[in-house]
Amino acid sequence: MWPARIGFTGSSRKTTLGNTKVCDLSDEKGRIELYNWIAENHSDLNVLVNNAGIQNWMKIGNDDFYEKANDEIATNVLAPIHLP
């Protein structure tokens, strides 16, 4: 799985347009590390836009269906809920 690139723009005095942080939003540990990095390096940041998402081509009968569905749910549903 490709790690998501998080771009920062907005009111942080330390941040410039195009600044990115690479993290794996499908992994809870990656989301926690991202949160801690933002808190430490950009504590005045008040907006984070999550533009990460995945879509896997799959059929319910595929051997790897559960794994692919779980990856989609973790990235597209759980990550945005967990980040705030």
Rank of each mutant, 00 (worst) to 15 (best):
K68W: 00
P80Q: 03
I73L: 12
M58W: 01
Q55M: 15
S26F: 00
N36S: 15
Y35D: 11
E33A: 14
D64R: 08
S26P: 11
K21T: 04
S11E: 14
T15C: 13
G18P: 05
E33H: 10
K68R: 14
A79V: 04
F8V: 02
N51E: 15
K21Q: 09
G53T: 08
S43Q: 03
N56Q: 11
E33W: 10
H82T: 11
V22M: 11
Y66Q: 01
H82E: 09
D27K: 03
V49R: 02
C23R: 10
C23V: 15
N36Y: 10
Q55Y: 11
D63P: 08
A52L: 03
T16W: 09
I6G: 11
E72S: 03
P84V: 14
I54Q: 00
A69T: 03
G30D: 06
T15H: 04
T75D: 05
M58G: 12
K21G: 00
I81F: 12
N19D: 14
L17A: 09
L25Y: 01
A74C: 15
E33Y: 07
P80F: 02
D44G: 04
V49F: 08
F8T: 10
L17V: 09
N76Q: 07
F65D: 02
D63K: 12
R5M: 14
S12N: 08
L48Q: 09
G10M: 01
L45D: 04
I73Y: 13
I60P: 02
N76A: 03
T20Q: 10
E33I: 08
P84L: 13
N70C: 07
E67L: 07
N41S: 12
H42R: 05
N70K: 08
S11A: 15
V47K: 08
I73A: 02
T9M: 11
T15M: 12
L17Q: 09
A69S: 06
